[in-house]
Each structure stands twice: as structure tokens, then as C-alpha cells.
């Protein structure tokens, strides 16, 4: 079980959280102007990264808030968590943030 550091509540066990999939996928600003290929990309295509993956989690049995995490999908180690809306931390900074 993962130990996940909610930016608002601190470290809590994984069972308090719901997974929210790949992070930083913005809803299109002008949906009416998208063609089918762009909609497909938005709705269905995911990076499925093998390595450091930016993803959403929700502390559903805690504060209820969404936040983002950087996790290495080859080890499941969580390298950083950060508030929704903040940019993805770069890897150099991430190493310093990691416990």
C-alpha cells in the first residue's frame, strides 16, 4: 500500500485516496472548434508513461480535495505531491523534495 502525502493533510495510507488518472489534461478552451482527432486525444489517449508520471489523486476519505503527484511507475515510489493548478515540478527540484 502506498503512503501518500496529501498537500493539505500530510501522509496517509492509500486506502484514503481515489486515483484520478493522468494530470495536466486541460479541457479544451473552445470545444466547438475541435475536430474528431483532437477529441479522441482529449477523451481517450493517455501517455501511459513507464517512468515518472504526473497523476491526479483525490483525498476522498480525508479533506476531499484533488492534488497531483509525481510517481515512478517502474517502482511506485511517489517523488512529489503538489497542489492542483501548480506546474509540474521539474525532476531536479523533485529529487530535493523527495523524502
Amino acid at each position: 500500500m502506498l503512503l501518500i502525502a496529501c498537500p493539505y493533510c500530510g501522509e496517509r495510507p492509500e486506502i484514503e485516496f481515489a486515483y484520478g488518472g493522468q494530470a495536466h489534461i486541460a479541457r479544451p478552451a473552445r470545444p466547438a472548434e475541435l475536430d474528431d482527432a483532437a477529441w479522441t486525444e482529449f477523451l481517450y489517449m493517455r501517455d501511459n508513461t513507464k517512468g515518472v508520471h504526473a497523476e491526479r489523486w483525490r483525498h476522498s476519505h480525508g479533506c476531499g480535495r484533488f492534488f497531483n503527484a509525481l510517481r515512478d511507475t517502474t517502482t511506485d515510489r511517489i517523488l512529489a505531491t503538489y497542489e492542483t493548478g501548480k506546474p509540474r515540478p521539474d525532476l531536479g527540484a523533485t529529487r530535493e523534495l523527495a523524502p
Binding site: 485516496f17 481515489a18 486515483y19 488518472g21 501511459n48 508520471h53 511507475t73 511506485d76
Partner: peptide
């Protein structure tokens, strides 16, 4: 719950 390439999962 989460995507992973580790070929393992959690006990819960």
C-alpha cells in the same frame, strides 16, 4: 487503483 509497470500490487 493506479497505473504501474511493477508487476505487483498492494495487499489490501
Amino acid at each position: 487503483a493506479y497505473t504501474s509497470y511493477t508487476q505487483r500490487g498492494a495487499l489490501h
